[in-house]
Amino acid sequence: MSAVTANPARRRSPFWRAVISDTGIVALIYVLLYALYAFWQPDALSLYTFTDLVNNSTPLALAAAGETLVVISRGFDLSVAGVVSLTNVLMAVYPLDGPGGALASLLMCCAIGAFVGMINGILVARLGLQTIAATLGTMIICQGLALVILDAPGGMVADFVTYTLTDTLFGVVPIAGLFLVAAVVLWLAFRRTNTGIGLYAIGADEQSARFSGVAVSGVRITAFVGAGILYGVAGFMLSAQTATGNPTAGTPFLMLTFAAVALGGTPLGGGRGSLVGSILGAGTLMLLQKVLFSGGVSSFYTGIFQGVVLVLAIVFGNTVARLLKKDEAR
């Protein structure tokens, strides 16, 4: 009897679990890093610097948030690069000014993301393609479309978008940050829907989820569509940042989103993790870049930094996941 009934699991205290959990570690890293930054650059604590940092991080944070949905469901979504490029190019080639124009642009970006996500979802959930293969295909097609629309960097994003979205509300709250807050709020609500719980279920074990009654393909398609919408918004915010169009604007996102997701404590094996962690992960990456390059290191070497951080982030994520697992299983 003692053989099959394991000892009651030794569980760590709630505080320690919160620290070591999905988002705890990355939040801690962010704070420490910011303290370090403030130590070197006294103006780091100014509202201007903070707003700037939030503005810089928002596109990546949104893209990483989208990627997290797919990763939790046990998949990889490469189409992020394509959707960001495509929406960025559209924003620059067809600028719509004024608040109404901004809203229309935002909706257009969301719609494009949702459409690409829908195609990914159908290819994967209904037609049985591997996630990497299917999203690689859609990424390439989107990048091609971006090139067709704008074959070299150029164009102008509408002034309203550029100015308003990089501004602050009441002089204190960065407007870009509001998008992140909205994403987090929606996520927390989604987590408590049947589909949200199903997302974790299919990520852990698709067969068991199916046998438990979860509508597997529906959940998977929802994950891809949600991810696509977030990529669309990321492209929108990126356009507000750069004010111009670039058909390869999305390429750096491919790598950085995975780094942010892994850093945020979402294991790439699926079934676990949180969108909040990924947003903090993205913030950490941008902050790290700022800290390291405030000294004026040659930009030739940013690539080396990004590559190394990417691998370290994933190794780090794997280690945290292992620790958490050890904590849970016996």
Partner: peptide, 16 residues
């Protein structure tokens, strides 16, 4: 751009 689109479509088509 079109060339890229065709390549992507070929990959997806071949996979399917």
């Amino acid at each position: 751009g079109w060339r890229t689109i065709i390549e992507g479509a070929i990959i997806v088509g071949a996979l399917l």
